[in-house]
Design a protein around this nucleic acid. Structure first.
Lengths: 126, 126
DNA sequence: CTTGACCCTGTACCGGGGTACAGGGTTCAT
DNA sequence: ATGAACCCTGTACCCCGGTACAGGGTCAAG
């Protein structure tokens, strides 16, 4: 963890403004450390910093907050699912193209470039 | 397609500077249109604009270019594969957490928040 | 008591892929 | 001949998640 990043989180409202020592240094409590760990884990689950801020504000609510958290999680899962499908389509298309690179070296004309250049998908809107 | 985007591609070196009419308007040839379509398709395959610029510069080379293109495609496929695996891990972890939201409404304490807060992965470096 | 390693604030910058002005010129239909 | 709807250049800005200064204060070891 970079100190600049901690201050950035403070600016973004993810971390509360910490108490200061007499000379003005930030004195982080163990609660702040826990919050930072929470942030990092939530990031690994694909939440954006804005969403994490929302989660943190919900964290002390009751059953209603619980519902909100659950629906945020559901939205994230759906979004992850969409992105996975997209990336798989890219990988498959590109893998298929690369598989066509099989002519002997002397008579090549790069099938990948030709395929990207020619293979217009249906309904393309330029 | 936005006109600003075309100029942006021109600045980035993806499109050659087009000829101008007497009054200075850009006169795009059909070759330029084909290039733009190429760019859009390559983007859909996950290439960055820098990579696409490289592909375009390679597009008129011979067998050696073909090898370069093939290795770029291979690198992209590997990268896509890595990203897919990451997103799947996120989706699975978050889906599992959401599955634990099952207590009756009155006695909830948001298991998702608790799990994110407590479930430290091994080898975590803050 | 100096030197080096930290901390502070404030502001600017990175990369990626564009988008949005401002302040002008042109073209075309009415 | 005039108004809308385009085009031009140049520059600045957007989001996102930080990172990097500059110009100063503080703290602990030697």
């Amino acid at each position: 963890m970079n100190t600049e990043t901690l201050r950035y989180y403070e600016r973004r409202g993810l971390l509360p403004e910490p108490d200061r020592t007499v000379s003005g240094y930030r004195a982080y409590t163990s609660a702040a450390v826990r919050t930072v760990r929470f942030i990092k884990r939530a990031q690994r689950l694909g939440f954006t910093l804005d969403e994490i801020a929302e989660l943190l504000h919900l964290a002390d609510g009751g059953p209603d907050s619980c519902d909100s958290v659950r629906s945020m999680a559901g939205a994230r899962v759906a979004d992850l699912e969409r992105r996975i499908v997209e990336l798989q389509a890219m990988r498959d298309a590109l893998g298929r193209l690369a598989g066509t690179c099989d002519k002997p070296r002397e008579q090549r004309e790069c099938p990948i470039l030709h395929a990207i250049a020619l293979d217009a998908p249906p309904g393309e809107t330029l």
